[in-house]
Write a protein that binds this DNA or RNA. Structure first.
Lengths: 337, 337
DNA sequence: TTGTATGCGTTATCAC
DNA sequence: GTGATAACGCATACAA
C-alpha cells in the first residue's frame, strides 16, 4: 500500500518533463527514445494514472449512477445485471444508489449530480411527484428515467405499456374460460400500482366482464404482502376462478396461499403475474407472466445514456418496450399446447 | 443542465475571496456578515461543491468498491443489501464490480485501485490463485476479503466455517435416521466447492458412515446445473434417502427434479441446502439450510473497511461468522416439532 | 519534439 | 477575520 507515483515521479526518473510524460502516456507524437524512457520508468514504478486528477481536468468521471428503490427487487436486479456490462464495455463504472422508494432520497440523488461524481444517472422512480419532476428537469447531468414521466418533461425515457400487458393476461385468462378474475395490486400511489389498477378495469370492460370491487385487493409488490392480500381476497370471494397479480412476487405469494387453502392451480384458480422475473419460471407450478422486458429496458436505458453523453444536443429520446405474455403451467397446467 | 457555479463564482457574487467562501462552507470561524453573504450567494446560485476537486485535494473519494462474481447470486445480493446502507450511513458511495468469477477481472479491479477512484475495496473471490493473492498484497488501497485466504496474507478478512456448517446439516439428517446421504457439489476448483467437498467426507466419517463416491456428484452452484447433477446422481443411486446440497440453489433444483421423479420430500428424500437464501424459506417445501450469515458477513466486511479507513495502522482483523442450521420442511415435513 | 506555465475546483497555509 | 497563493495530479496552449 505504498505511496502512489505521479507523472512528476516518472518525469524525474526518466529525466524528462511532466509534459512529455503526459504526452507519452496519452499516445501523442513523441520521439522514440523519450517514449521508451517514460514507459520503462512508468513500468518500474508501477505507475497508475490518478483518475481523480484526470477527472478534474477532463470534466468526465467515467462513472454512471443507477438509482432504484431496492436492489433486492428482482426487476431492478435484472436491470442492474444488464446495465452493468453495457457500461463496463463503454469504460464506465457503476455507482449504485438504493433509495428505499423514498422520493426525498431520489431527489437527493438528483441534486447530488451537482457534485459531478458521475457523468449521468439512470433512475427508476416509484412515485413521480411534482418535486421529483422539477428535480429531474433541474438535474446537472444527463438523466435517463425508466418508467412513465409527465408529457411535458424533456428527458430520455424508457417505458413499457403495462396497460396493454395486463390486458394480454386478462384476455388469456378469459380465453381459458375464466370469468371471475380477481386482482391483487400494489400501492395505488405508485406509478405501476395506478397503471395496473386502471388497466385491470379497462381490460375487464373490453372483455365485457363486470368490474366487481370485491374481487380487487390492494397490498404491496412483495411476496409476503401479496400473500396477505390474496388471503383477504380469497376470504371475501372464495369463488374466483382466476387471479391476476400485479407482479410476480404477489403471484408467488398467491401460489403459496392457494396451496395452503387446498386450491389447485390452475384447475381451481389460474394464476398470472407480471414482470416475468426468473422466479416465475422456476416456481411450481411455473407462473404465467407478462414480460415487461426488464432486461431489455435496462439495456436500452444504458444505451440511451451513453448516446446522450456522446451527443448532448440531440432531442430527448423515448424507447418503448412492448409487453409479451409468457404462458406457463399456472394457467394452462403442466402440459401446455 | 446549466453551468455549475464554483467557489470562484460565489466569491465574486458575495464580494469576498475564495478563501472566505471555502471557510464559510466548511464551518470555519468567520465573521457573521461574511457568513451571510456567502451563504446567500451560494443559495441563489444553487452551488454544490465539486466532489472531484475536493477528492483531489483531500485524497479521499468517499467511494468504496464491492467486487463479486455476479450480483444475481442471492448470496452476493444479500451482501450488497447489507453493505450499501452501512456505507451510505458513513457517507460513502458504492461502486459495483461484477467479475463473472474471472480471476483476471478480479486482479484488474485490484490493480485499478491505483487510480484512486475509491478509498477501499470489499471483494469476494471465488478462486484464490497465487496471482490474486499477490495482487491483494500489492493493493494500493485497503481491501477486505470475504472468504478464505492463505494464512500468510495480511488482510482484513471475514470468513465463515462451512465445514462445521455442513456437518451441522449432516448430523441433522443422520439424526432423522437417514444414512444414504447424497452430496451435490459445485466446482471443486472454487474455494467453497473444495471446502464443502472435504467437509462432506469429514462429516460422514464423524458419523461413522462410509464415504461412497457414487453418492457424490459435481455440477455448479446454480439451480439448472444443480438440477442436472441431481438427475445424474438419482440415476446412479436411486436409493438415497437424503440429499445434501452444497448451496440452496442446487437444493431448489433438487426439489424440482425430485418432484418430477415422483419422490416425496422429505418422506422419501430429505433435502438440505446451504447459505440460507430467502428463496430457501419461500420454496415448497421450505428448504432446511445452513446459514453462513451472508447478511452478517456483508455488514462485518463493510464495518471492517470503515474501521480500517479510520485507522490505517492497526493489525489486520479477522471476523468469523458462525454457521447455524435452519430446520425447515424439506427435512422434517410440514409440522416441525 | 520538448519544456514551461496555466488551469481544473478545492483546501489550507501564510501573511496582513 | 480575511485575502493572496500554493498545492492536489493531470492535460495542454504556447514558447522554445
Amino acid at each position: 500500500m505504498g505511496e502512489g507515483p505521479t507523472i512528476t515521479t516518472i518525469a524525474a526518473r526518466a529525466g524528462v518533463s511532466i509534459a512529455s510524460v503526459s504526452r507519452v502516456l496519452n499516445g501523442l507524437p513523441t520521439r522514440q527514445e523519450t517514449v521508451h524512457k517514460v514507459l520503462s520508468a512508468a513500468e518500474e514504478l508501477g505507475y497508475v494514472p490518478n483518475s481523480v486528477a484526470r477527472s478534474l481536468k477532463s470534466r468526465r468521471t467515467n462513472q454512471i449512477a443507477f438509482a432504484m428503490a431496492d436492489i433486492a427487487n428482482p426487476v431492478y436486479l435484472a436491470m442492474v445485471r444488464e446495465i452493468q456490462p453495457v457500461l463496463k464495455a463503454a469504460g464506465y463504472r457503476l455507482v449504485l444508489h438504493s433509495t428505499d422508494a423514498d422520493v426525498g432520497d431520489e431527489i437527493g440523488v438528483l441534486r447530488s449530480l451537482g457534485e459531478r461524481y458521475v457523468d449521468g444517472l439512470i433512475m427508476i422512480p416509484l412515485r413521480v411527484t411534482e418535486e421529483l419532476v422539477k428535480a429531474i428537469a433541474a438535474a446537472r447531468a444527463p438523466v435517463v428515467v425508466i418508467g412513465s414521466v409527465p408529457d411535458g418533461l424533456r428527458v430520455d425515457n424508457v417505458r413499457t405499456d403495462s396497460r396493454t400487458g395486463l390486458r394480454l393476461a386478462l384476455d388469456h385468462l378469459h380465453g381459458l374460460g375464466r370469468s371471475r378474475i380477481g386482482f391483487v395490486n400494489g400501492p395505488l400511489d405508485t406509478v405501476p400500482g395506478a397503471a395496473r389498477g386502471a388497466a385491470y378495469a379497462d381490460g375487464l370492460a373490453a372483455l365485457g366482464l363486470p368490474y366487481q370491487p370485491e374481487l380487487v385487493e390492494t397490498g404491496d409488490f412483495y411476496r409476503a404482502e401479496g400473500a396477505e392480500a390474496v388471503r383477504r381476497l380469497l376470504d371475501r370471494a372464495p369463488d374466483i376462478d382466476a387471479l391476476m397479480c400485479a407482479n410476480d412476487l404477489i403471484a408467488l405469494g398467491a401460489l403459496h396461499v392457494l396451496r395452503r387453502a387446498g386450491r389447485r392451480v390452475p384447475e381451481d384458480v389460474a394464476v398470472a403475474g407480471m414482470d416475468d422475473i426468473d422466479l416465475a419460471a422456476d416456481a411450481w407450478p411455473a407462473v404465467t407472466s407478462v414480460s415487461l422486458g426488464s432486461a431489455e429496458r435496462g439495456r436500452a436505458a444504458a444505451q440511451l445514456l451513453l448516446d446522450r453523453l456522446h451527443d448532448a444536443g440531440r432531442p430527448p429520446q423515448v424507447v418503448t418496450v412492448r409487453p409479451r405474455l409468457v404462458v406457463r403451467a399456472s394457467t394452462v397446467g403442466e402440459e401446455p399446447r
